[in-house]
Simulated assay, not measured.
Amino acid sequence: MESAMPDATKDRIIDATTLLIQESGIDALSMDAAADAAGVSRKTVYNYFDNKFTLAEEVANQWIYHFLTDLASIVNDPTLDFVTKINLILSRGFAKMHLGNNMLRPRQKLKIDRRINEMKRELRERLRLFIQQIVQEAHGSHLIRQEFETKRLAWIFINIVEGFLLIDEFEDIPFSKIDLLKDSLRAVIRGILSEQGFIALQDSPIFSTDGYGSGEADSLAVQGGTP
Rank of each mutant, 00 (worst) to 15 (best):
K96W: 08
L19K: 08
A37H: 08
D81K: 05
L20M: 06
P205R: 00
D15E: 07
R128C: 09
L153I: 09
L123W: 05
K111P: 15
F67D: 13
I167G: 04
T150Q: 02
L201M: 06
L153D: 08
H66G: 12
R128S: 15
S176G: 10
P174D: 14
V40Q: 04
D36M: 15
I134R: 07
I14Y: 00
E137V: 07
A60S: 15
D172A: 15
I13Q: 01
I26L: 01
I26T: 06
L88V: 04
R145P: 01
S184K: 05
A154G: 08
L220K: 11
S41P: 02
E125I: 03
E125C: 12
Q22T: 05
K109M: 11
E2L: 05
R115H: 11
I116M: 03
L201I: 04
F170N: 12
E195C: 13
F130E: 14
A138R: 13
M31C: 15
D36Y: 14
D27R: 07
V161Y: 02
A4M: 04
S219D: 11
F82T: 11
Y65E: 14
A8K: 08
L19P: 01
F207I: 03
M1W: 02
L180P: 06
I167K: 05
L55C: 03
S194K: 04
E216W: 13
L90N: 05
L99M: 13
R114L: 05
L143S: 07
D81F: 02
W155A: 09
F67W: 07
D203L: 06
R145C: 03
D81S: 02
I134L: 13
S73Q: 01
D11E: 04
D179E: 12
S3L: 07
L143P: 04
S176R: 10
N87H: 00
R126E: 14
T79Y: 04
K109D: 07
T69Y: 08
Q146N: 08
R128L: 15
E195P: 14
T84E: 09
H66W: 11
I189V: 14
A200V: 06
Y212T: 04
N87W: 01
F175G: 07
I206T: 02
E195Q: 13
E149T: 11
E149S: 04
A138P: 13
S204H: 00
K85Q: 01
L71T: 13
A4W: 00
L127F: 12
S73G: 11
R42F: 10
H142V: 02
L99A: 14
H139D: 13
S208L: 00
G93L: 06
Q108V: 10
A95E: 10
K111A: 12
I160C: 02
D113V: 13
D218T: 15
S219R: 12
K120D: 03
R107W: 05
S30K: 10
R190L: 15
A217T: 13
Q202M: 09
I89A: 05
F49L: 07
S204G: 04
I64M: 14
I86V: 10
L71C: 12
Q132G: 14
E216Y: 05
T209E: 05
A154S: 09
E169I: 11
P106A: 08
A72S: 06
G197N: 02
E118C: 03
E118A: 01
D70Q: 15
G25H: 09
